[in-house]
């Protein structure tokens, strides 16, 4: 009983959390230095352009036993993929699962192209997700499928649950203390507007799952395996939480 009361005491303040008022919701691009913002805004200076260019090449390259390329079915990505990344993760009616962009691309590869799935964080998968994500630049995040509700709810719980040796939750930083300092860095609101991102610390492009893994390791929690439902639920919740913000893929972050 006492344990329950204590648990309730710990959980109770978090029940309110998760809600940054709509008027205060913003991409963390605005808190970056002017130099980084310039780097993100200029495709000539944004190193993620290399990933997008290679993604364009892969889009047109035939793969697998079907001998088909992405373009053979989807045509010109600039038209067919416009705004698509802004509504992912999405519910897949055929399998009844929620898929993020990485999982969708791999599903397309295995089911339609007859090609082996690409490993998470492999160069090829990042190329393709960057290229597809780029086509949604400027589109408002708009995940409105009601079938996503269970994943969003799971994601919300994971976001608010304390975990790891530091006993932190995502919400403690990103809902309750955004805008304040953690060491030299400003705590971001953590909206996934720009993924995959070029992160200076990584010297590379990385996915949202890699970023989530990074945060979990920072909290000294056990990270989930890449591609797990827990990550996809968190991604679904974060996109729901960032609804209306424009996509910035590929963003640059410090």
């Amino acid at each position: 009983m006492r344990a329950l009361a204590l648990a309730l005491l710990l959980v109770a303040p978090l029940a309110q959390a998760g809600e940054i008022p709509a008027a205060e919701r913003r991409s963390d691009t605005v808190t970056m230095s002017a130099e980084l913002r310039a780097m993100q805004a200029d495709d000539m200076a944004n190193p993620a352009s290399f990933w997008a260019l290679d993604g364009q090449t892969l889009w047109d390259a035939k793969a697998g036993t079907s001998g088909k390329s992405c373009a053979d079915c989807h045509g010109d990505a600039q038209a067919s993929m416009k705004g698509v990344a802004a509504r992912y993760p999405a519910f897949d009616g055929a399998t009844g699962r929620v898929l993020d962009l990485e999982a969708r691309i791999n599903q397309c590869r295995t089911d339609r192209q007859g090609a082996p799935p690409l490993a998470m964080e492999s160069r090829e998968l990042l190329d393709l997700t960057t290229y597809v994500g780029l086509q949604s630049r400027g589109a408002p995040i708009s995940s409105s499928d009601p079938r996503l509700a269970p994943a969003i709810e799971t994601g919300r719980q994971l976001f608010s649950a304390r975990q790891g040796q530091l006993n932190l939750s995502c919400a403690i930083c990103h809902d309750d203390n955004w805008g304040r300092k953690l060491g030299g860095a400003t705590v971001p609101q953590a909206h996934p507007t720009g993924y995959p991102i070029y992160r200076l610390e990584w010297q590379s492009v990385g996915s949202l799952q890699r970023r989530l893994r990074n945060c979990m390791v920072g909290m000294r929690a056990e990270p989930y395996p890449f591609g797990s439902d827990a990550y996809i639920a968190l991604e679904a919740f974060l996109m729901f939480r960032a609804k209306g913000l424009p996509m910035e893929t590929p963003a640059v972050r410090p």
Partner: peptide
């Protein structure tokens, strides 16, 4: 001239 301290994808 570049050194090992220069970041990846030099601009």
């Amino acid at each position: 001239e570049f050194s090992p301290a220069v970041a990846a994808n030099p601009y």
